[in-house]
């Protein structure tokens, strides 16, 4: 069985420790949620696993399906099957959505294979319709001038098109109104399968009403301090994070 397996990971930003001896294992087919207050290291985890150059991994291992992520370049990690839906998707002026996703798909293809444009557009339009994205968006520059909601839908569109083995959703719910949240969640749920894993990072239990997790973890000062089922999210929602802090202090 394939897994995302993170063991004893320590991550620094400019010599400041953010993740500290962090461990987590997510088997394919499962959806895990990580919740935690601001600054607990949730986004650092996602950026570090994707090999963002500003995140300095000093200790530990991270494996995806047998690949050792620690020594890989960001694009190699992507092609190995890890997709990160960004909390703040980056604007890339002049590069259209259609061309960008096409290039990303071609980067995964064997050289001998022929890219079939007709099939590509058929699939692209289908996914755009599912996510309620206007078809005119194919010619728009990537994230350039998009609203918060449009950016998040565009992230899920890319995820659906690239068919990754493992998806990290970093605060995908932030900036979404309730209708957009439903559409985006439906997009994610339709991708749930026994050979794909998800890590959902969020502040709010609200998202987990739509994307129901198999497990919920609470992060605090760079570590997982509580794990449970989806009820843990509800408990956090009603009691707040202070409850965890008090328990940890006790």
């Amino acid at each position: 069985m394939s897994t995302l397996k993170v063991q004893n990971l320590s991550v620094y930003i400019e010599d400041k420790p953010i993740l500290n001896d962090f461990s987590l294992e997510i088997p394919y087919g499962e959806v895990h949620a990580i919740m935690g207050p601001n600054g607990s290291g949730k986004s650092t985890l996602s950026k570090a696993l994707a090999a963002h150059p500003n995140y300095d991994i000093r200790n530990g291992t991270a494996e995806l399906d047998g690949h050792n992520l620690i020594d890989m370049e960001p694009d190699e990690i992507s092609r190995a099957g890890l997709f990160l839906a960004f909390q703040y998707p980056i604007e890339v002026p002049g590069v259209t959505i259609a061309n960008f996703i096409r290039a990303a798909i071609q980067a995964r293809m064997e050289e001998s294979k022929l890219f079939k444009a007709v099939d590509y557009y058929k699939k692209l339009y289908q996914k755009m319709d599912d996510l309620g994205i206007d078809r005119n968006f194919t010619a728009r520059s990537l994230n350039d001038g998009f609203s918060g909601g449009e950016k998040k839908r565009c992230e899920i569109l890319q995820m659906a098109m690239l068919d990754p083995k493992f998806c990290i959703l970093d605060e995908t719910d932030s900036g979404l109104d309730i209708d957009a949240l439903r559409v985006v969640s439906a997009g994610v749920n339709s991708m749930r399968s026994s050979n794909r894993g998800f890590l959902v990072i969020t502040h709010y239990q609200r998202l987990l009403d739509y994307i129901v997790p198999d497990k919920v973890h609470v992060m605090w000062e760079g570590k997982i301090v509580r794990s449970g089922d989806k009820d843990l999210a509800s408990e956090l929602e009603s009691k707040g994070y202070d409850w965890i802090k008090e328990e940890l202090a006790a």
Binding site: D75, I77, S78, F100, L162
Partner: peptide, 10 residues
């Protein structure tokens, strides 16, 4: 980084 995360080389 964003584009690399989608699989494109640097």
């Amino acid at each position: 980084f964003y584009m690399q995360q989608r699989g494109l080389s640097e």
